[in-house]
Amino acid sequence: MGKLKFAIYWGAACGGCDVAVVDTHEKLLDIAAAADILFWPVALDFKYRDVEEMADKSIDVCLFSGAVRNSENEHIAKLLRQKSKVMVALGACAQLGGIPGLANEKRRQDILDFVYHGSPSTASQKGVYPQEITSVPEGKLKLPKFYDAVMTLDQVVEVDYYLPGCPPESARILEVVQAIVTGNLPPKGAVVGALDKALCDSCPRKREEKKVKVFYRPQEILFDPERCFLEQGLICLGPATRGGCSDPPRCIRSNMPCEGCYGPPPDVTDQGAKMLSAVSSIIDSQDPGQIEKIIDGIVDPLGTFYRFGLPASALRKKRFP
């Protein structure tokens, strides 16, 4: 068998997924031994033209990280899809929209206003916004179109596998790559490098009774490092998030509640809905006024429960009048 041909790309992403790939350390060399990397903008110098010139399906595996935020992301996603046999959505942004997806709570124009004018660190001429086409003496300069909404990878192209995480754990990436190398692949559409069980299953903290009278943010209280976060009033998305990032989960080990980056477990489509359902169910009060007060303690429910999954959620984006 010849060497496998890989492409690694980032859309709307922070680069963390690429770092996670690099973080496989010397194991990366094993990958390199088994595979040729044909395209990896973060690490290697290739041009889009190189990809365009490849024959269809000449890439064996494309690892696509990042969400689809603009026309360039979409264009390259489609291009890579055309050239790749297997398309893997790598990381939370590609799978769910990720942190960039939280922008779906804003209007496109509001984002541009803030970034180009509102932000205190920006000095920009009034009324100047990036244009898709700018005429200069040398000709026309083109910028990608900034979309109204952030999309997940599978909202623009067909995705074969999802490798969740923000970023995915390096060890999981390696396992998946090895599975691909050995041809040991699950059915298409599967989430790989994660478990069917939610994170709670591998959480070492002890659970007693889920009844909560106040919700806190981590900085607001000193909490018991041995006991379930939720039971102490800290919102932890462990129950509605796929496990498998690491065992025991790293965030939990570092005394931080799970934020949900591994996405919904297999029988759930809307992670936020499920999580808010569980969280509200543990409120220990039968007094409507007190219930209201306790709920008010949850600052920004949407950002909390859909932190990584807004574009992948059922409603995808805020409705504006």
């Binding site: 709570e105 936020g272 809905a273 808010l276 359902s277 969280v279 509200s280 169910s281 409120i283 009060s285 039968q286 409507p288 219930i291 209201e292 709920i295 949850i298 920004d300 429910p301 949407l302 950002g303 429960f305 409603l315 805020k318 409705r319 504006f320 009048p321």
Partner: peptide, 29 residues
């Protein structure tokens, strides 16, 4: 409230509904 066939299932509905409603408002509903 206070008259649930299952004693307090409706309180559960109330808690869930309020948090869901708040979240939906953030979705612009």
């Amino acid at each position: 409230l206070g008259n649930c066939h299952y004693r307090n299932g409706n309180y559960n509905a109330l808690r869930r509904y309020r948090l869901l409603q708040k979240t939906l408002e953030q979705f612009g509903l």
